[in-house]
Design a protein around this nucleic acid. Structure first.
Lengths: 140, 140
DNA sequence: TTTACTGCAAATCTTTTGCATCAAC
DNA sequence: GTTGATGCAAAAGATTTGCAGTAAA
């Protein structure tokens, strides 16, 4: 919960109220291993605070997004996931067989980014990228 | 409508019924400039065939997908789009400012694909890829 | 004639919103 | 005490499904 300091501090400094619901949503995001969905945050918070409503989770996520404190990743399939912006941008290899998510360093995309700029004058925003395929374990 | 032959032929050969609804959905996909959404297909078909229901469009898309006749592209944000598999795989640069979609040749992703294989033993399925960013026109 | 396909309505699933109440400051 | 935040219920948007009737073969 120590890492939550910065997000909480920003909220406080900006004059937003530190409700227990918000603190718990932030803590769920901070403590998640990887990207986490609104549903997952909700079911985690509801265990300790049963009266919480999922719309509060969405509203908190909306706020944190607007303040640039969390990053939203759309992996497709209607699932949107979140992670602390402070953890930086990273990408994912998503296995279509087993669902494994492998973290990917930003650097591997640099060549692509440069090629797009050179060949298409396009400034690619590769902050939220998920590449689907088959992981080494699922290749027969 | 001439290009529809192959999709229609496959349907016929596989014993699926050639209903006017199906023919019109196929034709809408074939004649679309680019990827097309279920909603767009529906509003196009409904002009000539007012009694058609959008669930029929979804069921037809589901069938065509299963037969590998159309490719589904999830551009994120809950929008799923379709195009004929025969038109091959291509990717998109989607401008976050103006919404422009720029077609991208498959070859530009080859280096990335190879790097992922070498460094992560990951066989990337780059059939449906959308890269967001800013197009040359929207860079101030 | 057979049964795959369709239209319709209702159900899902995820996210959003209006509103009255409540609690952080 | 103010006013921003919450819970609740309902709405919204995209897609799916059950079912009885319809039409392609």
């Amino acid at each position: 919960m120590e890492q939550s300091r910065d997000i909480i501090d920003v909220l406080k400094q900006q004059g937003y109220r530190l409700t227990p619901q918000r603190l718990m949503v932030v803590s769920a995001i901070e403590n998640s291993e990887d990207h986490i969905s609104a549903e997952e945050i909700y079911s985690q918070v509801v265990t300790r605070y049963p009266s919480v409503n999922i719309s509060t989770v969405y509203r908190t996520l909306e706020l944190l997004k607007r303040l640039g404190l969390v990053t939203e990743t759309d992996l497709g399939g209607g699932r949107v996931r979140y992670h602390p912006a402070s953890k930086g941008h990273h990408h994912h290899l998503v296995c279509q067989e087993c669902g494994a998510m492998i973290d990917l360093d930003e650097s591997i995309l640099k060549p692509l980014q440069e090629a797009l700029l050179l060949e298409h004058d396009f400034i690619a925003d590769l902050r939220h990228l998920a590449i689907h395929g088959r992981c080494f374990r699922c290749q027969r």
